[in-house]
Design a protein around this nucleic acid. Structure first.
Lengths: 352, 352
DNA sequence: CTGAAAGCGCTTACAG
DNA sequence: CTGAAAGCGCTTACAG
């Protein structure tokens, strides 16, 4: 299927020079006479020769490849991160390979081992909300990885993690989401979040509570639910709120962990006979490509994930680890409406 | 940032054996005495030693890494392919890195060079519709790549491409889509496809025409439009049909190149005051995760992309190249309605 | 069951 | 400006 590739020896003998000289023209060193360079280049072309990065890596200090650890790629949120990292890496001739960190305990070929064996020039690890015990485990795995290569964290990175990172202050973001809902007149604001028992002080939860508190609104346990961030679970989350509460207590606004959850909420609301956005304002996060095409078009928060991925890759490639926080912005669309229009009698009001 | 890693020499001297012996226990050879094995394993653990795949690759014949060439990852369609390949690869300890083939002519660090340099164990290349001239160019690039590693093609692979492949018979699929619309009573069926001047006999175009022909329906040029497969272009595509035709000639059904295009069509239809699916049946392809959450939920075709990716990876890993066609199935949801129900007097329309 | 030695395909001082 | 040689971290016959 594959023919044997030419090596530097083939090229050298073809060109009548030593392999050291071939190596020099390959690396673009100026200390080669034009004549020699020409001969070597001709031989390279004739042989379709490409130096092996494998052999190069063994000698030099770089493998020209990065790793990225992501929960999964099917949520476009992660695809955006990957794309950002990949595009940045490519500029410098780096490739990036994916390692889904689904389980730290994969029996064989677990990501940590695969990563370590590969001697990558660095790895970007996306940190998700984790309950305290798993968080400890993650930290252990990360420190193990650090022995083999630079590690840069992205995502919701707790401030006490001692790693370079490009993180999101999810608390501040969620607080802003609550405040936005409040500014529309909402007081009954539900929240469908991620893992409950997390201890990260910057997690969404904290921002939700702070936002409510600042608006002097009660924090109602029945309005808060946790899930794993899929549309199905988002739907189940709002379902459970709507099913356990009498309609007069139903929230008039719901903030989803991410757009996937928000999509599920829209579905749930519709099945409960709610008109959107009249009866319920829904807000998501990640600003997925499909957000504008939902009905109503989903208001979301753009967290600049491509930039996050690119920045993390940059830190590794340039060897300039740092700790940064990525900014974000609310993207206004049609899924959030002022509470005025949410009144039951709004139907009788003049249509705008 | 990184401490020096232990090598096989460190482990050998720690354990008081030769590196050959360490290598043997590493590779799980049975010809090592339990006692020796134990000593070596202890040394490995103490040193946190992991063999370098780089060094291994130089000796052995495998790099334990695959490449995949995809147009982009932001369309979940491609993320599914990647995921399928990645999950399959991981089972055998292979990693997979992504090379977006945006341009064959990237000046530096073009994918073909990056791939060749890396001496991967194989590469999966996703073939898209291409106008004839670019197709020739692709073929040249692929043949170049083949010199360095096994190449497996996926996607809409023309039958005359001489490569192992897992392909989709897009013509048969599109024909089935047309027939489905016909079975619902539609006669004015629009089609928003990909590149126009492609010569592949299995392309969507061909199936569209065949489907129409079989139903003895005229093939109307105004109903056919081409685009690049984004929601924006899908919307622009249907816009142009709707804007240039008097309403009585408007299609009652539209088949999109993919779900992204179909999403754009839904948007366009709404902006033109059409009720969905009453006034227009819309069908997509790829069965993206968001299809069920659109309004109306989008009928689509599941082309089993994860399986495609997995199968291609398998061919490379097992060294069993083949030429296969992936099957597909229509996933029925709410965006297609019988022409009967398309009448203005239809009872339960979708409430916006 | 174990070790000494050659070799994989490069880069990099070191000489000249 | 160019070459001989050592070395990167492994695997794999080949001996014993």
């Amino acid at each position: 299927m594959t023919t044997e590739n030419a090596t530097i020896y083939d090229v050298a003998s073809d060109a009548g020079v030593s392999i050291a000289t071939v190596s020099r023209v390959l690396r673009g060193e100026s200390s080669v006479s034009p004549k020699t360079r020409e001969k070597v280049e001709a031989a390279i072309a004739r042989r379709h020769y490409r130096p092996s990065i494998i052999a190069r890596s063994l000698t030099g200090k770089t493998t020209k490849s990065l790793g990225i650890v992501l929960p999964k790629l099917l949520n476009p949120h992660y695809a955006m991160i990957f794309t950002g990292a990949q595009e940045e890496a490519r500029q410098s001739g780096y490739s990036v390979s994916l390692f889904p960190w689904s389980s730290l305990h994969a029996r064989e070929y677990d990501p940590a081992t695969m990563l370590a064996e590969r001697r990558l020039d660095g790895v970007i690890v996306c940190v998700e909300y984790l309950p305290p015990d798993q968080s400890e485990e993650l930290l252990t795995a990360l420190r193990g990885l650090k022995r083999f290569m630079p590690v840069v964290l992205i995502g919701c990175v707790p401030p006490d993690y001692d790693f370079p990172a490009v993180s999101l202050n999810a608390a501040a973001m969620t607080k802003a989401m609550v405040k936005y809902m409040v500014s529309l007149g909402h007081e009954k604001i539900a929240f469908i979040g991620g893992v409950q028992e997390d201890t990260d002080p910057l997690r969404r939860d904290v921002g939700y509570e702070e936002g409510l508190k600042e608006a002097k609104l009660p924090c109602i346990a029945s309005y808060r639910v946790y899930c794993k961030g899929t549309p199905e679970e988002g739907k189940a989350g709002l379902d459970s709120i709507l099913n356990t509460l009498k309609p007069e207590y139903w929230p008039t606004a719901v903030i989803g962990l991410n757009d996937l959850v928000a999509m599920g909420c829209q579905q749930s609301a519709r099945e409960h006979g709610l008109a959107l956005p009249r009866d319920l304002s829904v807000m998501g996060c990640d600003n997925l490509f499909c957000a504008p095409y939902l009905l109503p078009a989903l208001t979301s928060v753009d967290t600049h994930q491509q930039r996050v991925g690119a920045r993390a890759a940059q830190m590794i490639i340039r060897g300039e680890p740092a700790r940064e926080t990525m900014d974000w912005e609310i993207i206004h669309r049609d899924s959030c409406a002022a509470i005025r229009e949410n009144r039951p009698d709004a139907a009788n009001d003049s249509v705008i």
